[in-house]
């Protein structure tokens, strides 16, 4: 009896402690998602701000059947964007971390601090500095350099492919410090004795990387890689600020799913359609999360 009472008290206290957080999440996170789901079933737009009506799944049909200039195209580009980013990030970060871990490198700390800068800078400031300082076709540094070697200025953000590459460079610049730090930390945790015996066996850098470093750091960096995968897929700032700013579009027609949803909500005012896209993205992300968690759970069991 006493035990049961204590349990009740504990349960009450648990929920009491949770309540401020749950109220905030319920009202400001969950309810707007439910409301988004509701809007996605209506024809709400500029002309139907108040007198909108339920039109069923039409918005979803439009989102999932039209490719050109539609959600599916943005989704395809987002997948490409994520894949290219992840490959570059993992490869470059691995090389950088390997170099940072060369034993006799004295000024490692100085280099690391400098390499941290892009991570420490406010992201949107960096992106705007890249846009206005580097890529501007009139006074941007890149075109100044091109001019010096006698080449014509390039409109970096006007053409789809070039703008995509520009966004890629900026995103790598922003994201690499985190990945380098994670890999560097993981490499430091590898027992040096393994390397010494590998060196004695005459294994070169490549051989040591493939059969020693990569297997050793893989489980350590896995969570950070997955987190980066999600943040890259959900990247909004780089593409929006470089190319899609409201009232200052640069001419490149590249959209990730998030900039596409924003564009449809706040620029072209297709609220119903934008909400349908939002729900599709949310469902995709839930699916990814569930798959990842299921796999992670399985791995944990295997390790036990």
């Amino acid at each position: 009896m006493k035990n049961g009472k204590r349990k009740y008290h504990n349960t009450l206290r648990s929920w009491l402690c949770l309540s401020p957080s749950l109220v905030i999440i319920g009202l400001i996170v969950v309810f707007p998602i439910v409301y988004t789901a509701y809007i996605s079933l209506t024809n709400m737009n500029v002309y139907h701000w108040f007198n909108f009506e339920i039109i069923g799944l039409d918005n979803y049909a439009k989102a999932l059947t039209v490719f050109d200039g539609g959600f599916l195209q943005a989704l395809a580009l987002t997948v490409l964007w994520t894949a290219v980013n992840m490959v570059f990030q993992l490869v470059i970060a691995f090389f950088m971390a390997s170099l940072l871990n060369i034993q006799k490198l004295r000024f490692r700390r100085v280099y690391k601090t400098v390499l941290m800068f892009p991570w420490a800078m406010p992201g949107y400031v960096s992106i705007l500095l890249w846009k206005n300082g580097m890529f501007n076709s009139q006074f941007g540094l890149l075109n100044q350099w091109l001019g010096k070697i006698g080449l014509d200025p390039v409109r970096w953000l006007a053409n789809d492919a070039v703008a995509f590459a520009a966004c890629l460079v900026v995103n790598l610049w922003l994201a690499l410090p985190f990945m380098i730090m994670i890999m560097d930390g993981a490499m430091q945790s590898v027992d040096r004795a393994y390397y010494e015996s590998a060196l004695l066996d005459g294994a070169g850098w490549f051989r040591r990387s493939v059969s020693l470093t990569i297997p050793a750091i893989r489980p350590i960096i896995a969570p950070a890689v997955v987190i980066t995968l999600f943040t890259t897929f959900k990247q909004f700032d780089v593409i929006y600020l470089l190319t899609q700013q409201v009232g200052a579009k640069t001419g490149a027609n590249i959209h990730t799913v998030l900039t596409y949803a924003y564009e449809n909500a706040f620029v072209t005012s297709n609220y119903g359609y934008s909400s349908a896209i939002s729900m599709c993205i949310f469902i995709l992300l839930i699916a990814f999360t569930l798959i990842y968690n299921a796999k992670g759970g399985k791995r944990r069991v295997e390790n036990d």
Binding site: I28, V29, P32, I33, Y35, T36, I39, F230, K234, F236, L258, A261, Y262, A265, F266, Y271, S274, S275, S278, I281, F282, L285, I286, F288, T289
Partner: peptide, 11 residues
């Protein structure tokens, strides 16, 4: 995993 920007219009 839900990007806040997706429910921006609803908010």
């Amino acid at each position: 995993s839900f990007p806040a920007i997706l429910s921006m219009f609803a908010i």
